[in-house]
Simulated assay, not measured.
Amino acid sequence: MSISQLYRSTGPGIAFWTLGFFGLLLVSSGQSVKASQPIDPIVLKVASQLFIPADYYIKAVIDDRTDQSPVAFLVPNADSGRQLETVDLEGGAMNALERYFSGVLPRNPNLKPIVVRIKDLKIMEVLKGEGRVLVEGEVFLDFSFELDRGDELVHLLDFQGGISYKRGVRQFYLIEPVLRRSINNSLTYFNDWIEKESKNEIKLLSDVQVRIRDYREDFGDDTVFYNPIRPLTWDDFKGRPRFNNYAASIFSSISYEGNSWIEDGEVIVDLVFKTYMLKSSSWVRGTNNSYGLNHEQRHFDIAKIVMERLKERVQQLDLQPHNFDRKVSFHYLEAYREMNRLQEQYDRETAHGLNGPAQERWNEKIDEELRHFGLK
């Protein structure tokens, strides 16, 4: 039997093809005899331990095949023509793979749990040659390796592999070694990848250190970032007044920037939170007084209070390397909605500053929370 291999593996920053040749085995040239019995299921043999993983163990196998029919479509005899016989792995494909993985790789539950998702697994054959004594076949597999984080499976690496082979029409025993070699190729490649990336791939790390800071740079441009020692002035309201009955309006908002890197095997997450107002989008009609400026300042204060609440929530989160960005983004969006609700409630209850007693109540409420966060 002659065997050639073609496989592709994809992962973070990885995509390549490799073509190899694995030698020759004798192809029977004797007269073919029509098979009288169905082909036996393929028994994956654990010949020996493949290697000992240092960082992980195979926890489970998930059958994610769109076609869950038997894995092999084999030429049964020389007279079959295009008629193929379906043959499965002994005990079913997933059971056979689970047994095989546990046999060739030791299981250590103290290591990272890896789940292998089987997207495709096929053996396809065709009868060739004038004498109908030669069968050409191909093994194709598509595996996805995922890290089980408990609450979700985190994708790490995809591996697509294939081996083409030739056998004599009666040499069914030669199929299993080819399939086994394909599976071993996927396990070997994943093992090599995880050994190389164990300290460099964020998804594989477990410790996250979050650093939170406020952005307060003042470049004298269009943006004013919140600073408790720098209250607003009417000079910050440079926009053109709108056609409405309001005396002034402020555009204030919140945002954040995040950056991450790996330092001594730990994921460092640097979060910069910004509470700001835009001069060009904020305006005042004619001259106004300190009462009106206080009303607009309180809009700015509300945005800052919401940002401080967000920072508290982020500090309490159980962030993992695979989910910190998603979790912070979710809570930021919730804070943004909270800010809009509070701003609308503030304007509604104070009648946009016209209700003096209500304005005073909001002044006291806002000051109390600013003191809570050490901002007053």
Rank of each mutant, 00 (worst) to 15 (best):
S249N: 13
S144M: 12
H322L: 07
Q160R: 14
S198W: 13
L278C: 05
T287H: 11
Q315C: 09
F21S: 10
G81L: 04
S282C: 06
G137S: 02
R326A: 15
G353V: 01
S260F: 03
D120A: 14
Q171I: 02
V71G: 01
Y7R: 09
L74Y: 01
S253M: 07
V87R: 03
G161T: 04
A54M: 12
I62V: 13
N77T: 13
G292I: 15
A54E: 14
V269W: 02
E217T: 14
N294F: 08
E369N: 03
W234L: 06
S280E: 05
Y189Q: 12
S32W: 06
D120Q: 10
Y246F: 13
L89E: 00
F73S: 14
Y276L: 13
F140P: 08
V272W: 03
S255N: 12
L127C: 04
G92T: 02
S164Y: 09
R170H: 13
T188I: 13
F219N: 14
D218Y: 12
N227K: 11
T350K: 04
R180G: 07
F51M: 06
D221Y: 06
F22G: 10
Y276V: 06
L179W: 00
K59S: 12
G292A: 14
G353Y: 01
Y276S: 07
N108Y: 04
D55T: 12
G11V: 09
I163P: 07
V224C: 03
E197Q: 12
T18I: 10
D158A: 06
S69W: 05
N245Y: 11
G131K: 15
V314R: 02
E217D: 13
